[in-house]
Amino acid sequence: MSAWLPVGGSVPGSGGPPPTPDADANSIWTSLIHDAGVAVMILDANATILYANDRAHECLGVRPGPVVGLNYADAAPTDAGRERTDLVRRVASTGQSVVLENTVAGCRRRTALRLLPGDPPRVLMVCRPAYAEPIRDKAHAAEYVEAKNHERGDLDTLTPREIEILRLIGKGLATSEIAKALHRSEKTVEWHRVSIGNKLRVSNRVELARIAIRAGIVGISDDALALPT
């Protein structure tokens, strides 16, 4: 993939990579930025954005509109954005790859940051939904980091008990099964389910289950979620 990336130059901000004699690298890059449904950015050592594909706005929480030439902290002026900015600089400085787990707009995300070959240093950032448990691939020696900052959207309005019930709904448990697991009455569980639906603006269990899975709360701990108390 690095075959077409210019050493010491800037990466094009739109329209994909320039022509390259390395057809395999070009095909891989084109598939990554257009076909894989992932957000892709390339940033310099100071976290200035050199390239961003269309999915970057949605997955990485950056503001709409042109972002090439902006520092990541300015394109995503949130605590989560500043945290990613620090990680980009760290990867550029140390060469150690990082995989970050966090929540953006209520959706659990997994963001990989890896140093590209060549000089000056550039960092490839790839982000995708993290619905499943992470794969700890020791062969690539990436450090897995749980973000300190999450942007959960409407999920932040839920109580810890409602989060617990939403998680069990996401696992496919019926009201009677949830009541038994939590030692509560079915009426109480149903009351919580209605409250959750009102807060998240959905009316059925299927949509609640999708939200739970998309947010990544089905298979992770309360500590990882840093639930509100």
Rank of each mutant, 00 (worst) to 15 (best):
A3N: 10
A3W: 06
W4L: 10
W4S: 13
L5A: 08
L5H: 09
P6N: 08
P6W: 02
P6Y: 03
P6A: 09
P6R: 13
G8R: 12
G8W: 06
G8C: 09
G8Y: 06
G9R: 14
V11R: 06
V11E: 02
G13D: 13
G15D: 12
G15V: 06
G16C: 12
P19I: 03
P19K: 08
T20C: 15
T20R: 06
P21L: 01
D22L: 04
D22P: 00
A23C: 04
A23H: 09
D24W: 05
N26G: 07
N26P: 00
W29F: 15
W29D: 05
W29S: 12
S31I: 10
S31D: 14
S31G: 14
I33S: 10
D35C: 05
A36P: 03
A36S: 14
G37W: 11
G37Y: 11
G37M: 09
V38Y: 05
V38G: 05
V40I: 02
M41S: 08
I42Q: 03
I42A: 13
L43K: 05
A45V: 01
A45D: 15
A45T: 04
A45C: 02
A45G: 11
N46L: 09
T48Y: 01
I49L: 08
L50C: 01
L50A: 02
L50R: 10
Y51D: 02
Y51M: 14
A52P: 00
A52S: 10
N53I: 06
N53C: 10
N53A: 09
D54T: 12
D54N: 11
D54A: 15
A56E: 01
H57Y: 05
L60W: 01
G61F: 02
R63V: 07
P64L: 14
P64M: 15
G65A: 11
G65T: 06
P66F: 01
V67R: 03
V67I: 14
V67L: 03
V68M: 02
G69Y: 00
N71E: 12
Y72D: 04
Y72F: 15
A75Q: 07
A75S: 07
A76F: 00
A76C: 13
A76R: 13
T78V: 03
T78W: 07
D79N: 09
D79Y: 01
A80C: 04
G81K: 11
R82S: 04
E83R: 01
R84D: 00
R84K: 07
T85H: 14
T85L: 02
D86Y: 04
L87M: 13
L87F: 07
V88Y: 15
V88T: 11
R89G: 12
R89P: 08
R89K: 15
V91R: 07
A92L: 08
A92M: 08
A92G: 04
S93F: 10
S93D: 15
T94G: 07
T94F: 07
G95L: 11
Q96P: 00
Q96V: 09
Q96T: 10
V98D: 05
V98F: 03
